[in-house]
Design a protein around this nucleic acid. Sequence first.
RNA 1: GCUCGUAUAGUGUAGUGGCCCAUCAUAAAGGACUCUCAUUCCUUUGACCCGGGUUCAAAUCCCGGUACGAGCACCA
Length: 486
Amino acid sequence: MLQQREKQARRTGLPELANAEKGKVVLRFAPNPNGPLSFGHARGIIINGEYAKEYDGELILRFDDTDTSKKPPLVKAYDLIQQEAEWLLGFSPHRIIIASDRIAEYYSHVELMLEGGFGYVCKCSAEQFREYRVGMTDCPCRSYSTVDNLEFWQDMLDGTYQPGDAVVRVRTDMTLRNPALRDWPALRIQDTEANPHPRATVGSKYRVWPLLDFQSAIEDHLQGVTHIIRGKDLMDSTRKQKLLYEHFGWDYPETMYWGRVKVHEWGGFSTSQMRKDIEAGLFEGWSDPRLPTIASLSGSGIQASALRNFWTELGVTQKDIAVPLATLYSHNIKIIDDDAPRIAFIRDPVALTLVGVNESFVEIPTHPNTSNLGTRKIDLQNSVVFVEREDLQHHKLRLKEFGDFDIKDNQAHFVAKERTDKRKIIHWTSKDSSVDASLQRVIDGEICLLKGKLEEHQLPSNTPVQIERIGYGIIAAHDKIIFTHD
RNA sequence: GCUCGUAUAGUGUAGUGGCCCAUCAUAAAGGACUCUCAUUCCUUUGACCCGGGUUCAAAUCCCGGUACGAGCACCA
C-alpha cells in the first residue's frame, strides 16, 4: 500500500469499449437515407468507424429505410451516403445492409414471436391503445390465441387490414414503470400503393413494415453487432429492445450514448427540414455552403480528418452540448496549413504603374515556412500591379516579397528592394500574372461572389490554399476560390 | 403527468475517494517570431450546479433540491 501511483496521464482519444476483444468488434451506423449525411451524422459514422479501426473490427453501414410516407427515402441518397461515409472514414464500411432488402428476415422473426407468444396483433386504434398504456391496463387483443394471431398476421399481409387497423406488438408488461416500454409496436401497415417505396426493386412489394425498434433489434442480432453507440434519445429504444432480446433468448450488445449537439452558428439540423427547404428553392441543393451537410463542408474545404479529429475530441459523453465552428476550423487549419500554397487575391483591385523597376519578373516563395512547395513567378512585363483599394489609405507601402514603394497618382515609385522602414506590408499581384476571378463566401446567410484579381496558378480543383491576408479556401476553378474560414 | 438521463473555466473535455488550491484543447487578452490580418511559440485570465450526509479524506460515493435534455409516434 506504500506504492505511489504514477500521476495518471490524461486519457487521449476515445474511451475504451466495454467487453471488447480486438478483432471481434462489430459496430454499425444506421442512417435513414431520406437525404445525404449532415454534420450530426458525421458523429455517428466517425465514432463508430474510429472504434472499428481501433479494435480491428467491422463497421456496418445500414440503411434504415422502413418509412415510406413520413420520412421517405431519397433514391440518390443511398449512393451519396456511401461515398460520404467513405470520405469521412478514410475507408469503406465493411458491410452494407439495406433494411428494405431484409423484410423477409423480419417477417420470419415476427412469426417466431407470434408462435412464441411474446408478440400479438393489436387491432386497437393508436388513441385507444394510448389509454391502455396510460391506464396500465391490458389491451383486449393481448388475449388472442397464437392461432388467432397467426391468422391476423396473414390478414395484415394480404391487405384485409388497412393502415391503422392493426399493428404487431411486443408483449412486455402493461404495468412497467416506464410507459415507453409497455407493449411497444413492432410493425405497422403502410399504404405502399399510394406511397411506394422509392427503390424500384421494392416499390409496392410490402404493406407491412417493421418499425425502428424491431427492425434494428433483429438486424443487430443477425449481423452479430457487439457494440451499439448512438444518441441518448435512443435510450428507451435500448430498453425496449432488451425486452425483445430476452424473449428471443439473445444477448444484447454493449451500448454507449452521446448527447445532443448544436452548433452555435447553425442551431439544430434536421434532414427532413433541409429537404423541404431545398425543394422549396431556399437552397441550391444539398451541397449549398449554407447547409450543415457533409457535402457542403467538403465542398467548402473542410478536410475529413479535421472532422474526425473534431468528433473524437468531443468523445461520447451524454451531455447536451453546443459547439462553436471555430473549434472545427482550428482542426482544419492544423491539417492544411503546412501544405497550403499561398496565393494572392486582390479585392477591389486598383492598378498601379511601376516606376523605376527594371526586373521583368519577381519570384516569391509559395509557402513561407517551407521550400518544398517551390516558388511562384510574377511577371512584370507590363509594369502594372494590382493592390487592394483599402491599402491605398497609406502612401508608403511594401509589396510583399518585392520591395518598398511610394504611391503617387496611381504610380508606384520604387524605393528599395530591402525594407527601409516599418511601412505596411501588403499582398499584390501583377497584371500579367493574374486573372479576373471571384471569391465565393457566405456572408450573413447569403452566398456572395467577391470579384477581384487572382494570381495565376496551376493548382488543381479542391486544393486547399491560404489566401494571403484573407484566410483559407479551396481552388474551385482557375478563376474561382471558395472561402473556407479565416 | 409518468419514465430515463446529464450537470467541471466563455465553449468543449480529462478526472471513478487521497496524485487535483483540478488536465488538455479551443476562445479571449498580452507578448515573441515572421516580408500575410497566416502558421509557430510563450504568458495571463478563467471551472468542480446548490444543500445535506458518509469518510481521517469527495469533483469523484449517498440523499434531497435546482437546471437542462430525451422518451412515452402505427418517425428514424
